[in-house]
């Protein structure tokens, strides 16, 4: 464990907490893409199947369980408990266009053609694009609440920090994983436009509003 990975994980955890608190406190999931949340739930359940087969550390197990449980809880809040507030008219991204290509790519480019490995690879590919429905929703409505912006910033920072972790591990441990690195780069690049708006607008107290 190095500082970049720890900060990345904490940033990821913070993002999830911000989102759950926002939904719980306002009793509303307006402005949040349920499609992205479904994709994240698929990502964590397919990636952490090794919970049942491999023990790494208490930290690792704890975080995996938290990520699976909170992603399922978010989907439940959006599609069941606070369904009436869900912005489904604007959340029109077709997630099969992300799921199917990610799965085909995982079958073609992986470390080993075994079910657990293919699902791990699929989850890495899917995670890299899972935020697209959310960004699509923000671009469709032309704005995002500050709290949604903080959520997106924390979530985007997580994979960005992992990039530094991978650079560190490459030099310090001679370890690297190209599948994770390339997908992580794609994932971080997708947030760049948002990062720019966040730093130039939201941090200065303005609402995130896209130019008309």
């Amino acid at each position: 464990m190095n500082i970049f990975r720890l900060l990345g994980d904490l940033s990821h955890l913070l993002a999830i907490i911000i989102l759950l608190l926002k939904i719980w406190k306002t009793r509303s999931c307006a402005g949040i893409s349920g499609k992205s949340q479904i994709l994240f739930a698929i990502v964590y359940t397919t990636r952490y199947l090794d919970l049942f087969t491999t023990f790494i550390s208490a930290y690792n197990t704890f975080m995996k369980i938290i990520f699976i449980a909170t992603s399922l809880a978010t989907v439940f809040l959006m599609y069941v408990k606070f369904k009436a507030t869900y912005d489904h008219n604007h959340d029109t991204f077709r997630i099969e266009f992300l799921i199917l290509p990610a799965f085909v790519l995982a079958l073609l480019i992986n470390h080993e053609l075994s079910p657990v490995e293919v699902l791990w690879t699929f989850s890495i590919y899917l995670e890299s694009v899972a935020i697209l429905p959310q960004l699509f929703l923000v671009s469709k409505t032309g704005e995002a609440e500050s709290i949604t912006s903080h959520y997106l910033f924390a979530l985007g920072s997580y994979r960005g920090l992992y990039l530094f972790n991978w650079i560190y591990r490459y030099y310090a441990e001679d370890h690297y994983d190209l599948i994770a690195i390339v997908a992580g780069l794609v994932q971080t690049v997708l947030y760049c436009d948002f990062f720019y708006l966040y730093i130039t607008k939201v941090l200065k107290g303005k609402k995130l509003q896209l130019p008309a």
Binding site: R5, N165, H175, D177
Partner: peptide, 10 residues
């Protein structure tokens, strides 16, 4: 192993 190293990440 390499596989284990990869799986220790989240």
């Amino acid at each position: 192993s390499e596989k284990k190293k990869r799986k220790d990440e989240l």
